[in-house]
Structures are given as structure tokens and as C-alpha cells.
């Protein structure tokens, strides 16, 4: 059987719409992961046991279990509790939550990498605790986390196809709808896969550039 280029070109606009949805899920999910990850990292450093223990358990549990089932949980269980999310919203929350557990580890390493003298100096200057974090520790911890954080944006994008399971209109869901009409699966599935692959390759190329630049800054 041959690849039918006319058919492929016909369905390309629909698949590109799907890719746009996938990119939106990636960007919004990633921003959520960056913010939530920092919250998790700070909460796990809390001296109050009733904060750091449950958050620590939650983070380890989410990180150790499959994203797909977390998506099912968000999409099928929350409506029973009175919180119905659209497929895309559930997908974004799922991706953001799952990857926040990864980014929180990156932030943790970044915070631990700040030299202890910086803490001592902040105490010696009698800075209030909030300012120790916002003016001394985080401005040093976050930049050194950036290369690793960038890599997780690529990893997150590669998990977006899983949103097909909760009917988000990403390329595979679009492809399935096309197949239901045409009964010709080869081109839609191949093209959806190639679109994902192409974006992943571009992102990983950009990621390498970011990594090199930040490595250069660290040694300079």
C-alpha cells in the first residue's frame, strides 16, 4: 500500500489544529508545573511536619504512578465530586500536577546548591525570613535550575499524546475521528506521529541550545 499524498494533504489542516491544542496543553501545563513545583519544593522544606510530610508523600506518590491513570482520575472521578473539567482542562491539570513533582526535585537541588554562607549572611544581616527567600536564596537557586527545567518541558510535550485517552482534541484524537469516516488509518496515524516527532526534535534541539548557554554562563 502506498502513502496517499492527496489524502494526507486533505487532512493536514485538521491535524495541525490538533497539534495547536497539544501545544496549548504543553505551554499551560508547563507553566503550572513550574509554579506548583516551586510551591511543592518550598512546602517540603517547611519545618512544620504537618506540611512537609503530607506534601512529601503526595509528591512521591504522584511521581511514582502513571500519568494516564491520574488523567482518568481527574476526568472521571472529579465530576462525581461536583467538579467537572473539560477534557483539555483536565489534561492541563494532570500534566501540570505530574510534572510539578519532577520540577520540585529540580528546585530542591537548586536550593541545596546555594552555598551555606549565603544563609549565614542573610541571618547575620537580620533579614526577615520572607526576604531571605525572595532576595537571597531563590534568585540564586532558580537560574541554576533552568537547564534541567527546560528538559522537563520537552518531556512534558512527549506525554501530551496520552491526552487522547480523555478525548482532548490532539492529533491522535483528530486522526481517530478522521479514520471513523474514511476507514483509512495509515495516513492519519503516520502524520499525527510525525507531527509529534517533528516538534519533539525541534524542542530537544532548542533545549540543547539553552543548556549550552547556561553552562557557558556558569563557567564564565
Amino acid at each position: 500500500m502506498n502513502f496517499d499524498w492527496n489524502y494526507a494533504l486533505d487532512i493536514l489542516p485538521l491535524l495541525l489544529d490538533g497539534l495547536l491544542t497539544a501545544l496549548i496543553a504543553t505551554v499551560v501545563g508547563y507553566v503550572a508545573a513550574l509554579v506548583l513545583g516551586l510551591v511543592f519544593a518550598l512546602a517540603r522544606r517547611s519545618s512544620k511536619r504537618w506540611i512537609c510530610l503530607p506534601v512529601g508523600f503526595f509528591v512521591e506518590f504522584i511521581r511514582g504512578t502513571p500519568l494516564l491513570i491520574q488523567l482518568f482520575f481527574l476526568f472521571f472521578v472529579l465530576p462525581q465530586l461536583g467538579l467537572a473539567l473539560s477534557p483539555l482542562a483536565a489534561g492541563i491539570v494532570g500534566l501540570g500536577l505530574h510534572y510539578a513533582t519532577y520540577t520540585s526535585e529540580v528546585y530542591r537541588a537548586g536550593i541545596e546548591g546555594v552555598p551555606p554562607g549565603q544563609w549565614d549572611a542573610a541571618v547575620a544581616l537580620h533579614l526577615p525570613r520572607r526576604r531571605v527567600w525572595t532576595s537571597v536564596i531563590l534568585p540564586q537557586a532558580v537560574p541554576r535550575s533552568i537547564p534541567a527545567l527546560t528538559n522537563y518541558s520537552i518531556a512534558l510535550f512527549k506525554d501530551v499524546p496520552q491526552l487522547v485517552a480523555i478525548t482532548v482534541a490532539e492529533p491522535f484524537t483528530v486522526g481517530r475521528a478522521i479514520i471513523a469516516e474514511t476507514f483509512r488509518p495509515f495516513e492519519p496515524i503516520t502524520m499525527a506521529g510525525l507531527l509529534y516527532l517533528a516538534v519533539a526534535l525541534v524542542l530537544s534541539y532548542l533545549g540543547r541550545i539553552v543548556e549550552r548557554r547556561y553552562k557557558g554562563m556558569a563557567t564564565a
Partner: peptide, 13 residues
């Protein structure tokens, strides 16, 4: 190639 192609993409194909 195979780091870029997610498990689900490969399985679907």
C-alpha cells in the same frame, strides 16, 4: 529518533 517518539506514538503506529 526514539527518544523523540513517545511510547504512545510508537504503539499507535
Amino acid at each position: 529518533l526514539f527518544r523523540g517518539a513517545a511510547v504512545l506514538v510508537l504503539a499507535f503506529w
